[in-house]
């Protein structure tokens, strides 16, 4: 999942980015309102963490233009301002949640996960795809009491696919949502990770759980309920 962090206080931004990355997100950072708008309008982000007091353009106006342009990424507002009025105004302007500074980083990560989950149409932190059970909090994958040892990237690919079972997800989309701009793009990394995943999740005699559709992308196969 890819998150955009918009925060002008660089030390704070660095901490949020580090925390989110450790939690398994691909994170991009914008330090002012104009950069934030430019980033967000690419519509690549599964979540936007937005500070309110920004140089250039304030958070509220960034939020309004985003919603006006039809970008539906969930937005989590960070604010150091007090008062119910401003909270109501923000939620009415299209924000999905808000956190008051100084916030708890653990809470920020938990809310980020919850917002992403909701935006993908899921309510439980445990995703059930066929026989696979993906715990998005502990980041573990189990199948018939078997636990798989996945690398962070493999887990992220699987989780992304699991949010959209049966849909074809292109390699480009995977790249866009699993890697931030700091990452060197090599399109074959995805192929390598997919093949590793497939090997780890399915034994030789089973049908592969991830299908490759040539020139189209990947699909998580879901067996019909027995």
């Amino acid at each position: 999942m890819r998150v955009l962090v918009v925060e002008d206080e660089l030390r704070l931004a660095a901490n949020i980015v580090a925390g989110l990355r450790e939690a398994g997100f691909a994170v991009d950072h914008a330090a002012d309102g104009l950069a934030a708008s430019a980033y967000a309008e690419q519509d690549l982000f599964d979540l936007i963490v937005l500070d309110l007091m920004l140089p250039g353009r304030d958070g509220k106006s960034v939020l309004r233009t985003l919603r006006a342009r039809g970008i539906h990424s969930p937005v989590l507002i960070l604010t150091a301002q007090e008062g119910k009025a401003s909270t109501i105004e923000l939620l009415n302007a299209g924000a999905d949640d808000y956190l008051a500074k100084p916030f708890d980083l653990g809470e920020l990560i938990a809310r980020a996960k919850a917002l992403i989950r909701r935006s993908k149409g899921k309510s439980s932190p445990v995703l059930q795809v066929g026989e696979l059970s993906i715990d998005t909090v502990r980041q573990t994958v189990t199948r018939d009491l078997r636990t798989f040892d996945l690398s962070p990237t493999e887990y992220r690919i699987l989780e992304y696919l699991a949010h959209r079972p049966r849909a074809v997800v292109s390699k480009k989309e995977l790249l866009e949502h699993l890697y931030d701009y700091d990452w060197e793009h090599h399109s074959n990394v995805i192929e390598a990770h997919i093949s590793n995943l497939r090997r780890k999740l399915t034994s030789a005699e089973e049908e592969p759980i991830i299908e490759t559709l040539r020139h189209r992308g990947y699909r998580l196969r879901v067996e019909e309920v027995r």
Binding site: G19, E22, A80, P102
Partner: peptide, 22 residues
């Protein structure tokens, strides 16, 4: 003043929390 102090506190708090994540 509250904004200023909260921002400074948020920096310190988040720094320590990142440090203690693992």
């Amino acid at each position: 003043a509250a904004h200023e102090l909260k921002t400074d506190l948020a920096v310190i708090k988040s720094s320590l929390q990142v440090l203690s994540m693992k």
